[in-house]
Each structure stands twice: as structure tokens, then as C-alpha cells.
Amino acid sequence: MTFTQNHLLGIEPLHPTEITTILDLADDYVALNRSVEKHGLALDGMTQINMFFENSTRTQASFELAGKRLGADVMNMAMAHSSLKKGETLIDTALTLNAMHPDLLVVRHGSSGAVNLLAEKVNAAVLNAGDGKHEHPTQALLDALTIRRKRGRLHRLTIAICGDIAHSRVARSNLILLGKMENRIRLVGPPTLMPAQVGEFGVEVHDDMRAGLEDADVVMMLRLQRERMDGGFVPSEREYFQRYGLDAEKLAYAKEDAIVMHPGPMNRGVEIDGAIADDINRSVIQEQVEMGVAVRMACMDLLARNLRKSRERARLRGAANG
């Protein structure tokens, strides 16, 4: 049991044993979530604020449910419509909220690094729920938990991450996490959607789906934003589906028992064939959603423990000095 972080800003700062710690605890929470009495007390008395500067339904709901199941008071702030539009800076918003003494801040923001900036200015434990094109750590952790439960391990697997890698924070967090756990990672997508010099991350890069999926244990599809389909990055929706959409023919190149993942929301018929998405023998997309709540409970639980410890230390120091 090791977890030394005060914030969860990304996968990059995590040690592999910390990742394992989160996943082990999340396994327990999966069991709790499947029971009738779903209440834990890990966050009892704590205040959790969800600040979403970008619209989100699924991630926000998942964090809200995770907090409530652990006994926190949860407040949602849809920042996309709020004071930032009136000219208030991110820092001022953070300081305003900080004055209300939240214990956990869950933040999503459209700019890479914005959550790091915010974490420097507040006393709460900050969880990154996605910042720009940088990281989305809880998504990578829930993907890891899904893989570990479905494949029985989280190392020495061949994992193909397919689609819009360049604009995806999910892809970044996943390739860092899966790399740390010593898996073989393949990135598959058109060159226009591949980040520069990504080969230096120790991954294989393919622009052909068939070669990329060959003998893969896990096929992870990414969402392609609509605004990127109309000739800017790829010529058209139908050409993209034909070359990079996951259908039965392409999936046949992967291992027979390969699992299919997608962080959602899906564009059926663009990056994934509806029949594959609904195939209960291959698709684990619904499990991913379930694991999401458990992983977020585990992350908040661990951060809350460290928060209590550091506050207790500060209190003792204050008593000793006073």
C-alpha cells in the first residue's frame, strides 16, 4: 500500500506501485458498488467541488456518484457558463472557491496545464478530469482496471490505441500508464492525427489498421471529434471509417479473444461499427463506465487519506510551536 501524491494531475508523476495501489483499492469498490448498500465513509464530512470548464456529462456524473457513495458533500459547478465569461481569471476563480474550504477539487479545463496551474494555488487535493490535450488520468486508470480484470494482468500485453492520438488526452495518459506497466503499445491512425516524434515514447506507430491490430490483446478506440472530419485532418467521415473504423474485418487481425474499448461517447459508424460496440463477447465499453466510478472512488479515498495525514501533521506542528 503506497500512495504519496497530494494531487492527481496526471499519470506521469505516478510510480507503478501507486498505480497498482489505486487499482487494488478500486477492485474493492467495484464489489461495494455491486452490493445493495453502496455507502462508504472514506470522504465523510469532506466537500468535493466539481469544476468543469468544458461541458461533460459522463465524467462529471461519474465523479459526482463516486463522491456521494463515499459520503462527501458534492457540488457541481458548470464553469462553461459562469464568471470566466465575465472576465474573471482562472486563478481568481480558484481562490474564490478555495475560500469555501473544499477538500477535493475535480477540474476539467480546455487548456493543457491549466489544472497544474490551479493546483498550485489551492489547499484542496486536485483531481485532473482532463486538461486540454495533456492528460486524463482517471480515464487511463479505469481503462487499466478494465484490462486487468478482463485479461487477468496488466503487463506484457499488446495494446493498440487507434484514432485521433494527436488531440487525445486519453491517449496520452493511457500510453504513459501502459508503458509504465511494461506493455507493448501500438499507436494507429492517420499521420495527420499523430503527435510529432511520438515514436520516441517507446511505442510503435502504424498508419495501417491491419498491421497495427495484428495479434493485439486490447484494441482501444478513440473518439474522432466531428469538427476534425470535414477535410481539415481527414478527408471525410466515410473515408475515415473505411480506413480506420473498427469493423469485424479489421478486428479479425487482433487476437481471437481481444477486447474492444472506447472511452465514449462513441460515434457509431465513424470510428467503430455499431455491431462491434454492442458485441458483449468483445466490447467492454459498459464495464469501462462501471470501473470509472470505482476508480474515482479509489483515487479520492487515497487522496483524502493523504490530506487528513498532512492536516494532522500541520495541526501537531502548530500545537508543538504554540
Partner: peptide
């Protein structure tokens, strides 16, 4: 500047 570091940080980059 486009490269490994900008890719890791998710910043819009130029060659």
C-alpha cells in the same frame, strides 16, 4: 516547438 516534449505536454506546436 513540435517535438517529443510538446507532444507529451499536449501543447499546440509548430515545426
Amino acid at each position: 516547438t513540435s517535438g517529443k516534449f510538446a507532444s507529451l505536454r499536449g501543447l499546440p506546436a509548430v515545426s
